[in-house]
Design a protein around this nucleic acid. Structure first.
Lengths: 147, 147
DNA sequence: AACCAGTACATTGTGCGCAATTGGTTTGTG
DNA sequence: CACAAACCAATTGCGCACAATGTACTGGTT
């Protein structure tokens, strides 16, 4: 499969994994100024995007969408709750579940998201075909390496 | 530029930023088992890759290569120093600089990197053209959003 | 009814990532 | 030479990510 003829450590420039890692952090950093202005972080923004779409979800469902685990989400959601972005309550029917829904502040930020998304899309400057190809490839990668 | 006709929060599925974020974490997670076996983390692996290529660098130069700042690198390098992966010493000529170089254990892991890289490349399963296109697009994105 | 396996979330601990501040070192300018 | 500006790293503080463990709840079995 992979040529092992020459034994040498591969340089950083050949490492796709590094480009992915660097691009992810760079894009997150590009969102940061706009999100900081709204008083939220990037992972919190992603949570809001899911809630704007689904209104109300359990922590488990949220984690499946975002591919984040409880250990990450629980404190994140608590911070979001204390800043008035979301509400958390136990499901009465099955008290193992915590249901997360939008609170007032989380709802009010909804309109800002559209603008942020447009600005970012413009800043990335990819034409629609490139955009879609990249998205397709990234999803392919993610599915290939996921268990 | 960007169509603002319909006002609605964009769904997660349309967010390139999320695919990038998810792919980056997924690929990092795919490296984790192999790296854990070597007793290192993913960012530590990246530091070693740079050092295998350059032998000796200042913290500043390392940060430029990896696009990480001092606040991240200093404790990371200290952990790597205490596990025998790298050495840190002040530059005698200019004592503002800290020079980082490979220590014994960091050198000895060099040969394992080649195998890990091959395994991962196989696991990602992209053909050479896709691989290169993705790398090109990621670098374009990174440069577009970087200051 | 007591038990037990499975599920969902919480908690703890470690390691990044980054902003902001601090402190020591060098360089440039008068 | 003096001294301000620039520079490099360290420190502090906060917020993720994730592994590992603990706790509370549910449904099915006995």
């Amino acid at each position: 499969m992979c040529d092992m003829g020459k034994i040498h450590a591969p340089p950083l420039a050949e490492q796709l994994c590094f480009d992915l890692y660097a691009a992810s952090r760079a894009v997150t950093a590009a969102y940061r100024p706009a999100l900081t202005e709204l008083g939220i972080t990037y992972p919190q923004y992603l949570v809001l995007i899911v809630l704007w779409e689904h209104e109300s979800l359990t922590v488990r469902e949220l984690g499946e969408q975002l591919r984040l685990d409880h250990g990450t989400l629980t404190p994140l959601l608590k911070r979001m709750e204390s800043s008035g972005l979301v509400e958390r309550r136990r499901d009465n029917a099955d008290e193992r579940f915590v249901v997360v829904s939008l609170a007032g502040k989380g709802e009010s930020l909804r309109q800002h998201a559209e603008r942020i998304q447009c600005d970012m899309k413009d800043q990335l400057g990819l034409d629609p075909q490139e955009f879609e190809d990249l998205q397709t490839t990234l999803r392919l990668l993610t599915s290939r390496v996921s268990p």
